[in-house]
Design a protein around this nucleic acid. Sequence first.
DNA 1: CAGCATCCCCGTCGATACTG
DNA 2: CAGTATCGACGGGGATGCTG
Lengths: 129, 129
Amino acid sequence: MTVPQPLTADFFDPACPSRALPIRGGEKWSWKIMRCLEAGPRRFSELKVPLRGITPKVLAESLRALERDGVLTRTAYDENPPRVEYELTPLGRSLFGPMDAACAWAREHLDHLLAAREAYEQSSERSDG
Amino acid sequence: MTVPQPLTADFFDPACPSRALPIRGGEKWSWKIMRCLEAGPRRFSELKVPLRGITPKVLAESLRALERDGVLTRTAYDENPPRVEYELTPLGRSLFGPMDAACAWAREHLDHLLAAREAYEQSSERSDG
DNA sequence: CAGCATCCCCGTCGATACTG
DNA sequence: CAGTATCGACGGGGATGCTG
């Protein structure tokens, strides 16, 4: 069970699942955008409101990346004023599974985590001065 | 069900679970390090081997961050030559749950994802090129 | 309204060299 | 062996202004 494995790591495989996740934590806005689309299609400006502080440039970039990965669709209506709607695909919705798992973990262990962080700060203050 | 929600997003809460995850995708090596420790404690140099290409600086930084979050422990033995061992905590091991969920998703939808990407490239080549 | 263009900041990551 | 120090590359993200 705890016997050392050969450490053959498949994560160097370009097709490694961990590389394929459309939602990487480093991408600050992806989760938030998806949550804002969870209840149904939204327009560009409708997304800007709940995503307080996001700039149009970053929102456009993020949406394009998610569209590229087939997580959402972009539909432009030829109207005036222009209207564009973003909507999750089934593939996108399937991401809520792992996302919820991650959030559940965080909810459950948040206290523990913050305590560990604080304890670490305390112990390093002594040496840092 | 698909009725638009107020879009009250709790992810602006500093205590939002999504913010608390010790493993953010942007941190390139975190998952890999944890996988390398899954089977049991490992020394610094034992980690460098499977994590091909990681520099000692980055490995040290990453380990420190994970230690700070209580995900692993660092144990230095006062020997010569020096020996330091890293080992997952129960908290760290509990992360494999959500990690596996994410990997399972990726494994299941990788084909779909790559196809979407390719299709996107195709359709944008016409306008770009 | 729905973006794009431009410039800049900063954190992660990497390469290299050095130390207790 | 197990790191630290320094420098630099790179990319996400932000601020501001402009356009169809």
